[in-house]
Write a protein that binds this DNA or RNA. Structure first.
Length: 417
RNA sequence: GGAGGGGUGUCCGAGUGGUUAAAGGAGGCGGACUGUAAAUCCGCUGGCUUCGCCUACGUUGGUUCGAAUCCAACCCCCUCCA
């Protein structure tokens, strides 16, 4: 691994952020010489970012911390098309309404990581809909399209899977990389942005932007990509049964977010501490060297630190404390996720099956029933074997709640109202 | 526009008239073992008022006692030709 002069690249390098750059020496040069403006793009394909985006966000964080200017580019325009890179088939087109809504929701996730403002090093949030939606087709083709060779575009790995599998790649999708390339040039013109960062799957798109910048403006632009993250056992980051591990509190509680990190595989602890926390390297080295069950301490630190950055220190401490009480004392923690039921309903008795659905632990009565058969369902820590069991006021503990558990890890409190 | 191929459950993928809620795999969940880990083994994996009923194999109709399987029309995708 090369030695870098610039603070930014040194931090990224020692923490394992760098997969590939277009020019190690050139990047190092500009980062040590001046305040660099760099951007990363996020497409509004869902109403929340997920853990997979976190690496890129952390990269932007370090960029700002080491004295440079990050730009968060929302893909309000490119979202109208959909990135075909490495996808097996075309995504469904999203309606402009959904895109706009997603764009506005995604913005909130960045506020804890970056300081936005108008200063030279303040982060900026830009939406490429601003320029992409007004392009004049023929003019665009003449200005930008003439710089692209279809022969070359077809040779990119990112579209090869589609072509090799004889699946259609629509002209619409084929244009995605041109628009992303154009974004880079537009940001260079507007903000003097010279670096684009992204996942390794974006390499082709980014390099296209670099070429286009050179051809149109004789600009010297750079690419910096991140490794595509998987867990040690090869699973993609951030996938669970209930879907992705979302960053939005609305879509995933801070307690569940904390739990996700707490359950990190041993082999990933060090890597994740470096990537997703801001702890000093020697502290990470110490945590990482813990053996056997002691590594659980490191996992708790990891979970708390990552949660603190996203949801705030207080929420993280609460989640940690809730987990400690629940798992280590077996006690009933007040702050477990809670659902409320009508008190009069409870007086009559609520069916266990549907109560689990209400609590969000299962998605159907049938699923609950299967879990009962499998011995996974507990009420106040007692295994339930009768799927017709009803939950009544008599099940209320001295704390006035009923604790429902699915398996060893998922718990929800039911509170009468 | 013409010729051919295809659309199956979360995904991949078998199935070409009946015991098919649909093989197999992946993924996911649960159980055992552990350390809220990994690996391993076992179970589950459409819904419901569950000895039964309902929905489901691109859509809509039809043939039949009976269809994912046969027929017709339509929609979408792919390949080649124009």
């Amino acid at each position: 691994m090369p030695e870098f002069k610039s603070d930014f690249l040194r931090v990224l390098s020692e923490r394992g952020f760098i997969h590939q750059t277009s020019d190690d020496a050139g990047l190092d040069e500009i980062f040590s010489r001046e305040t660099v403006t760099a951007y990363a793009g996020f497409d509004p394909t869902a109403a929340s970012l997920h853990v997979g985006h976190l690496t890129l966000i952390m990269m932007l964080y370090w960029l700002q911390q080491t004295g440079h200017k990050p730009i968060v580019l929302m893909g309000g325009g490119t979202g109208m098309i959909g990135d075909p890179s490495f996808k097996d088939e075309a995504r469904k087109l999203m309606t402009p309404d959904v895109i706009n809504e997603n764009v506005s929701k995604l913005k909130t996730s960045f506020t804890r990581y970056l300081e936005f403002g108008d200063g030279p090093r303040d982060a900026a949030m830009v939406d490429n809909a601003e320029w992409l939606l007004q392009l004049n087709y023929v003019q665009f083709l003449r200005d930008v399209g003439r710089h692209f060779s279809v022969n070359r575009m077809l040779s990119f790995d990112s579209v090869k899977t589609r072509l090799d599998r004889d699946q259609s790649l629509s002209f619409l999708e084929f244009n995605y990389m041109i628009l992303q390339a154009y974004d880079f040039v537009e940001l260079y013109r507007r903000y003097g942005c010279t670096v684009q960062m992204g996942g390794s799957d974006q390499w082709g798109n980014i390099v296209n932007g670099i070429d286009l910048g050179r051809r149109m403006d004789e600009a010297e632009l750079f690419a910096l990509t991140l490794p595509l993250l998987t867990t040690s056992s090869g699973a993609k980051m951030g996938k669970t049964a209930s879907g992705a591990v979302w960053l939005s509190e609305e879509m995933l509680s801070s307690y569940d977010f904390w739990q996700y990190w707490r359950n990190t595989e041993d082999a990933d602890v060090g890597r994740f501490l470096r990537l997703y926390t801001t702890l000093p390297m020697d502290e990470i080295a110490r945590l990482e060297s813990l053996d056997g069950s002691e590594i659980n301490e490191a996992k708790k630190v990891l979970a708390t630190e990552v949660t603190a950055m996203l949801h705030g220190r207080e929420a993280a401490e609460t989640a940690a404390e809730t987990a400690r009480k629940t798992f280590e004392e077996g006690a009933l923690a007040e702050s477990l996720p809670t659902v409320s039921v009508n008190r009069s309903e409870l007086a009559e008795g609520v069916g266990l099956l549907s109560l689990f659905v209400t609590a969000g632990l299962t998605t159907s009565n049938g699923e609950t029933r299967r879990h009962v058969r499998g011995g996974a369902v507990r009420v106040n820590d007692e295994t339930v074997s009768d799927d017709r069991r009803r939950v009544t006021e008599e099940d209320l503990t001295s704390d006035g709640v009923v604790k429902l558990s699915l398996g060893k890890k998922k718990h929800v409190l039911v509170r009468p109202e």
